[in-house]
Deep mutational scan, measured.
Amino acid sequence: ITGDVSAANKDAIRKQMDAAASKGDVETYRKLKAKLKGIR
């Protein structure tokens, strides 16, 4: 179950990262990237 949750989280975070990148929001992008590392 835990694996599914983190996989879903990663997917959601990647989508947020894409949105931040397209807006040029480097700050948010970095925060999300750090979150991704924390999940692993």
Score class of each variant (00 low, 15 high):
8 A>P: 10
9 N>I: 15
39 I>M: 13
15 K>V: 06
20 A>R: 00
1 I>Y: 11
18 D>P: 00
9 N>Q: 13
27 E>Q: 04
25 D>A: 00
31 K>F: 03
6 S>I: 11
32 L>E: 02
8 A>G: 09
21 A>T: 03
33 K>V: 06
10 K>L: 15
2 T>Q: 10
21 A>Q: 07
37 K>R: 12
30 R>L: 15
23 K>G: 04
25 D>Q: 00
5 V>P: 09
38 G>H: 11
40 R>Q: 13
13 I>N: 03
21 A>Y: 13
17 M>S: 01
22 S>E: 09
10 K>S: 08
3 G>H: 09
14 R>F: 05
39 I>G: 06
37 K>M: 10
32 L>A: 01
4 D>P: 08
14 R>V: 05
20 A>P: 00
25 D>I: 00
25 D>Y: 00
4 D>V: 10
6 S>M: 09
33 K>W: 06
15 K>D: 04
18 D>C: 15
18 D>R: 15
19 A>W: 06
31 K>P: 00
38 G>Y: 08
27 E>Y: 02
39 I>Q: 07
14 R>P: 02
35 K>N: 02
15 K>A: 10
22 S>P: 00
22 S>Y: 03
7 A>F: 09
32 L>Y: 03
26 V>S: 07
11 D>Y: 00
36 L>V: 01
26 V>C: 15
36 L>K: 02
36 L>W: 02
20 A>F: 01
10 K>Q: 12
23 K>Q: 08
39 I>R: 06
28 T>Y: 08
37 K>P: 03
18 D>M: 15
37 K>T: 08
15 K>H: 07
1 I>L: 09
22 S>M: 12
26 V>H: 12
9 N>F: 14
28 T>E: 15
34 A>N: 07
11 D>V: 11
27 E>L: 02
32 L>Q: 01
11 D>I: 11
15 K>I: 07
30 R>S: 03
19 A>K: 08
7 A>T: 08
29 Y>D: 13
15 K>F: 04
3 G>R: 10
4 D>L: 11
37 K>D: 15
40 R>V: 14
9 N>W: 15
7 A>K: 10
26 V>Q: 07
15 K>E: 06
21 A>W: 15
27 E>R: 05
35 K>F: 13
35 K>L: 15
37 K>L: 10
28 T>N: 06
5 V>W: 09
19 A>S: 05
3 G>C: 15
25 D>T: 00
38 G>F: 07
5 V>N: 11
24 G>R: 03
19 A>D: 12
33 K>F: 05
7 A>R: 12
23 K>L: 07
3 G>Q: 08
7 A>I: 12
17 M>L: 04
9 N>E: 13
36 L>S: 01
8 A>V: 09
26 V>T: 12
27 E>K: 05
32 L>M: 03
12 A>M: 13
6 S>T: 11
20 A>K: 01
23 K>I: 14
40 R>F: 14
8 A>H: 13
13 I>R: 00
25 D>M: 01
31 K>W: 02
35 K>R: 06
13 I>G: 00
7 A>D: 10
24 G>T: 01
10 K>D: 06
4 D>I: 10
9 N>G: 07
31 K>M: 04
33 K>M: 11
26 V>D: 14
23 K>T: 06
35 K>H: 05
24 G>M: 05
11 D>N: 10
30 R>E: 15
